[in-house]
């Protein structure tokens, strides 16, 4: 099976606040379930994005 690597970290949401990283505490409560869910959702979004031809530009 082809190795696909790992999503190491997901920081959900936008942070409008002055220099403070906001942590949504509910994700912590749900532990591994939150990790699995975020990995699946974010992974799907990333792979969907990279399938579109216009996304093939390299990063910064």
């Amino acid at each position: 099976m082809m190795r696909t690597g790992k999503i190491l970290r997901v920081a959900p949401g936008y942070n409008p606040n002055s220099s403070s990283l906001g942590v949504d505490v509910a994700f912590l409560l749900f532990g591994s379930i939150a990790v699995t869910t975020l990995t699946l959702v974010v992974g799907s979004a990333v792979r969907l994005w990279r399938r579109t031809p216009s996304s093939r530009r390299d990063g910064v």
Binding site: K6, I7, R9, V10, A11, G13, V42, V46
Partner: peptide, 9 residues
């Protein structure tokens, strides 16, 4: 979200 990916990914 902001997601950190390893090199393999």
């Amino acid at each position: 979200s902001v997601a950190y990916l390893d090199r393999e990914y």
